[in-house]
Every structure is written in C-alpha cells, then in structure tokens.
C-alpha cells in the first residue's frame, strides 16, 4: 500500500516537472551552503546566528524544508494542492511575505514575522512558542541557504501612511479601485477566489495555486491586520501570481481598498456594517475597465 502511494507521488511529481521545464529548482551543495554559516540576522535588539540554529532547525523544520533547505523534506511531497503550497525552497531566496518591493529580499523582521505567525491554509505552523533568540537564529539559518544575501541588500520597506477613519465613502471608493485594477480577475467579484483567471494560476515552479478566498474565514498568510493587507497587495507575494500594485494604487486609494476587502471577509467588522447600509453591488465583470485615475 505504502509503496503504491509513494509511486503515485513520484509519478505526479515528475509529470509536473516535465510539464514545466523552465521551473527553477535548487542546486546547491552542502559545501556551498556551509560557507555561509556565519550568516546573522538583526531583529529589534536581538542578533541571530545561523550556527546556533542547526539543532532547532533539525528538530522543528527539517521534516518539511529539508536538510538542504530546498523544501524537499520527507513530509513535503504530501502537500501539493492548489490550496496547500509546498514548503518554501530557501535556496532560491524568493519569499512571499515582504515589506519590501517585488523582486527584492525581505527584511530580517519580515522573515521573523513569517516564522512567528505561521501560515493559515498551509502546513507551516506557528512558531511563537520558540524564544525570540531562537527565532532570530532560525532567520539567520534560513538566510544562509541562499547566496542572494551575500550579493544583495533587502529592499527598502514600503511606506504605510497612518490609517484613516473608515467611512462609507471610502468603502465605495475602494470598490472603484477593486474594479479599476481588476483584482476580481483572480479573486472574483465577491472575493470568493473564482475570478475568470483563477483556475489556470500556477506559481513560479509551475505548481497550481489558488487565489485567496476572502469569504471563508481564514486569515491571509502574511498577516491580517489592516497594515498587513495594505502591504500584501502593494508588495505582492513573490513566487506566486499575486502581483505588486505599488506603482498603480496611491496610498489613499490603498486604504480605501483595504476597507472594501474587509466587507468580503467573514469576520465581523465596522466595514461590513457600513457596507450593509450602502447596499453595494459586486463590480460588473463585463463593464469596460474604468479610466485610470490621474496616474503620474
């Protein structure tokens, strides 16, 4: 029984590989990785050291992320569905949850927050039970797998202006932004992950991936405060189809959009109450794209 299952996984795995020959895959040796064991992280006033994380990594992370950090731990093969993404390949140095622009490295704090938070709708657990020092050491350990940090600095975090007061006007304006930049093409006009392009999405490694469903009550992987949601669509989730909108949504509009997205979510919110009073209809997928509003 066991072997049949394993064979299936193998078969499925190689079919995916064949279908997407362009997909990048990790290729570093233990030796190459070892040269970066001096990697550090700086989170608040704590300095993390990769060399101190070998043990906790083996204890808590290796089963999924693998001894080479390439996401091929022994449990990793069981995850692949559009809903459940495979563990991150740390060698590639490409991360979803960043405060930094698309195409740049995340900050140490970003990685620290991702490890602390864990990922909802994913097998990546929450690690807030580990001490701050242990988590900082693990951040340094994660970094030591990729040569990117030796050649590049993290991007400059995007600026998030103070959150304005939620108003009915702002929610309405947020609906216009949602229509203009066409989030609904993937997320659906009601945020139910059923837009016209949703079914064909694949991640950078050619694996199927589903857009976020706002309505089912799970929280976004990269955090669920208003600031987190602002950051998510401004920086994008690198390695996935979820793009960055930083060049095309102004800060004020971004807050409007955050408020509108809240109206989709199952959790109770002030936005939901206000939207009820407004009687807002979902955007019309067949309407021509609204004109761009004063792009610079």
């Amino acid at each position: 029984m066991r072997t049949t299952l394993q064979n299936w996984t193998l078969l499925f795995g190689s079919a995916v590989l064949l279908a997407f020959p362009a997909a990048a895959s990790a290729q570093l040796s233990t030796y190459d990785i070892e040269t970066r064991i001096g990697a550090e992280s700086h989170v608040g006033n704590v300095t993390g050291h990769a060399k101190d994380a070998a043990l906790p990594y083996r204890r808590y992370c290796v089963g999924c992320h693998g001894p080479l950090g390439d996401g091929n731990g022994e449990n990793a093969d069981w995850f692949l569905t559009p809903m459940y993404q495979k563990p991150r390949d740390f060698q590639l140095g490409v991360f979803k949850c960043r405060s930094t622009p698309t195409g740049t490295l995340p900050t140490d704090q970003d990685l620290f927050d991702a490890i602390t938070r864990g990922f909802d709708r994913s097998n990546m657990p929450q690690w807030n039970t580990l001490s701050k020092q242990e988590r900082a050491d693990l951040v340094a350990w994660v970094k030591h797998y990729s040569p990117r940090w030796a050649n590049e600095k993290p991007g400059a975090p995007i600026q998030i202006p103070p959150e304005p007061e939620v108003t009915a006007e702002r929610i309405k304006a947020g609906r216009d932004v949602f229509a203009r930049v066409q989030c609904w093409k993937c997320h659906g006009v009601q945020g139910m992950a059923n837009g016209p392009s949703a079914s064909t999405l694949t991640d950078d490694l050619g694996r199927p991936i589903a857009p976020f469903n706002f309505t089912e009550g799970s929280r976004p992987k990269c955090g669920d405060t208003d600031q987190d949601i602002y950051r998510i669509f401004m920086t994008g989730l690198d390695g996935t189809p979820m793009p960055s909108f930083a060049d095309n949504i102004k800060p004020d509009e971004a807050w409007d959009l955050v408020f509108y997205l809240r109206t989709f979510m199952r959790q109770h919110s002030k936005e939901k109450d206000l939207a009820k009073g407004l009687g807002l209809k979902p955007v019309d997928p067949n309407a021509p794209a609204p004109a761009a509003s004063g792009q610079q």
Partner: peptide
C-alpha cells in the same frame, strides 16, 4: 491595453536574475 495585465518574468534566481511580478492596469506608467 484597456485591461489589467500582470507582468511576471520567471528567471531562475540561482543565476542572479530575480523574479518580480507587477500589475499594469490601463494607463499604467
């Protein structure tokens, strides 16, 4: 175009070329 695109190159990061993914709605710079 008068429809939103997202421009998403997919290099192998091991070469030193890093993937990025940006949306370009109508009229985008």
């Amino acid at each position: 175009d008068q429809t939103t695109h997202n421009i998403h190159p997919n290099p192998n990061p091991m070469t030193g070329n890093i993937p990025w993914n940006q949306s370009q709605p109508p009229g985008a710079a």
